[in-house]
Design a protein around this nucleic acid. Sequence first.
DNA 1: AAAGATGTAACAATTGATGTTACATCAAAA
DNA 2: TTTTGATGTAACATCAATTGTTACATCTTT
Lengths: 147, 147
Amino acid sequence: MQISSRFTLAIHIFACIDTFENEYKVTSDFLAGSTNVNPVIIRKILGQLKGAGLIEVARGTGGATVTRPLNEITFLDVYHAVECVENGELFHFHENPSTSCPVGRNIHHILDDKILRVQNAMEKELASITLADIKQDTEKYLSAENR
Amino acid sequence: MQISSRFTLAIHIFACIDTFENEYKVTSDFLAGSTNVNPVIIRKILGQLKGAGLIEVARGTGGATVTRPLNEITFLDVYHAVECVENGELFHFHENPSTSCPVGRNIHHILDDKILRVQNAMEKELASITLADIKQDTEKYLSAENR
DNA sequence: AAAGATGTAACAATTGATGTTACATCAAAA
DNA sequence: TTTTGATGTAACATCAATTGTTACATCTTT
């Protein structure tokens, strides 16, 4: 299983807000155009980002804006905002291992710390990347187009 | 989205093989009992592990055995054997970002290296854990039960 | 009020995971 | 050589999550 495209969509949304907020009003329809994804899906993601306090969305008048400096928003913040698994558990366990088998009744003890290590490694890397990096590379690629 | 329970099931299977292979013949029915998962599911996972060269399964007579020393099989080997996403891509991209939007047509350039960093961090940690670690902790918890 | 947004409910479609039955096939042992 | 107990696998069922879509109440500015 893969991490849902909501994550890459959310990053795409932030790149659009930063790139276009001075030129256009960045609405769900605008974002739907850039991502080629249904506006209602965009609004749901905007709602999750808003719920996490990363953006504000103007009711009535429309448009999304970022609430903090971009270097203070990490990929991990976005990931947590948008990925909706219980406790953010990366690995899915089989539900009811046998309690009459000694391995079955201990498999959680045996595995939990190792799985946590893997999840922590991933989250640490996610936390090391910020939206400022995205801004920088977006500008790099866009200016490379104009030559 | 979470990584499928096939992964934790596969580790469970290895723990069973190592713990019980001298006492019992470790068949798909035996493993189905310990994991509380349907035997056909177990056989599919066994097939994937066999395809990756990690185990051998005896046709006719039945039973699974490991092909290499446990410290030479990493979590990453098991993960790759069992997780069936194209190229092992951890993140799912939205399919058709707009080519008429400058952000849309560059979003892959912008994101790919960062996503790769995250995936590499996860895989590096997966590669650092081996089935020998599982064996050791399995023995630890089972012997703790017998006191 | 009118216009242009958002928020959200309700439902459809698709996909992948998981479960289940059935059966062909295999290898050892009786 | 037949029986027995396995595996391999097809075919289908079920379920959950993602994603898409329509519709509409609601909000803010004009």
